[in-house]
Design a protein around this nucleic acid. Structure first.
Lengths: 204, 204
DNA sequence: ACCTGAACACCGTTCAAGT
DNA sequence: ACCTGAACACCGTTCAAGT
């Protein structure tokens, strides 16, 4: 049916990725690494030692660096689906709720996503070059989704203060840095307060 | 004039601290370390290598740990004066401006303080036990000052949403974690937006 | 092509030896 | 009492040797 045999990779586990032209053993290692990273990130945070991830996957450390030169590459791959889901949620919310409410709900959704991954918020703000591409990846994918929400709310006169999607993404991610220790409810309240700030200026 | 000879320690440099009953050479090392840490923190951030601080002060690493067992002890000592100044600013602002404005200005002042110390915001949210006492120190000193500002604004009906000083301190410090990379103006705008959120709810 | 893991660099922290 | 710095543990990253 399909003349390209390389991409016959149906039946993979959810979070596994198929790459063209890689040897079968390499593909197995990639999958094992993604599986391992997912578990290790959940237990030890996204800043877990590379050796822990390698051991857990049953491969040498060099293999980790071969397939994922930057730690951000691994993080990105592990959470790609969730990032996508987050972007998709924007259109769903826009259909179900009135503009500001959709905006607020989306920001809380984004907060939930980041806040439940230990170390992710910190990684997003790290200067370490090994995390370098991570903010770009997140922002590039989510910024357009959020932009639409903001523009809709602005058009409906429910928000009038000029604010960029990037600023809001950044604010939410920042507020998540503290969640590891404290309560996620605090962060949610603060985000709601922020949205109220947007509403308030619209009214004066 | 004074029968206690130990506390005749006038003429010290600004940021130096005098401790009772320490040997003269130890006191010299403490002062050198504070001076060194101040410089190194400014250039390399508060997470700079201990060896760098020790070398810069001309002492061995062991001496750092002797006088400042936790890194937070060193950070606390270096910034004590600025923390005090921040607390004092609360009463000055309360005298000069109307309640909400004083509150907003104080938060921006606190933001400025944290945001201009590289790594400090991250340290405040770190789980590392070596930073353990740091948040407590900051919150214990600043929480009462902020509490007064909030209560005054609430009494004047300029703010009605229930919010604790700790939540606001936490929010500001969180927003600073991203400042190392980006613009401090973003953070300031967000804080203003937050205060607007407090105002808005007061009006409905 | 790909894998392994020893090796190196770097950093935090301790503690035996010295004054 | 206090200081020094070698020593140890731990972690990131590379690369020679092997398949």
């Amino acid at each position: 049916m399909n003349d390209k045999t390389e991409d016959r990779n149906e039946g993979l586990e959810p979070r596994q990725q198929a790459v063209r032209g890689v040897r079968a053993d390499a593909q197995r290692n990639i999958n094992a690494l993604l599986q391992s990273a997912m578990t290790v990130f959940a237990t030890s945070g996204v800043d877990a030692p590379v050796r822990e991830i390698a051991d857990n996957a049953g491969v040498g450390v060099g293999t980790v660096y071969r397939h994922f030169p930057l730690r951000s590459d691994l993080i990105e791959a592990v959470f790609r689906q969730e990032i996508d889901a987050c972007a998709d949620a924007a259109v769903d919310l826009a259909n179900k709720y009135k503009p500001v409410e959709a905006l607020e709900r989306w920001m809380l959704c984004y907060l939930e996503f980041i806040a439940t991954k230990r170390g992710l918020a910190a990684a997003l703000h790290s200067n370490d070059p090994t995390y370098g591409t991570l903010p770009i990846c997140f922002v590039e994918e989510l910024s357009p989704a959020l932009k639409t929400l903001i523009e809709t709310a602005t058009a409906a006169d429910e928000v009038s203060v000029k604010i960029t999607p990037d600023e809001l993404l950044w604010a939410v991610a920042s507020l998540c840095t503290a969640v590891d220790n404290g309560d996620i409810e605090h962060a949610k309240n603060t985000v709601s307060l922020l949205v109220d700030g947007l509403r308030y200026r619209a009214n004066r």
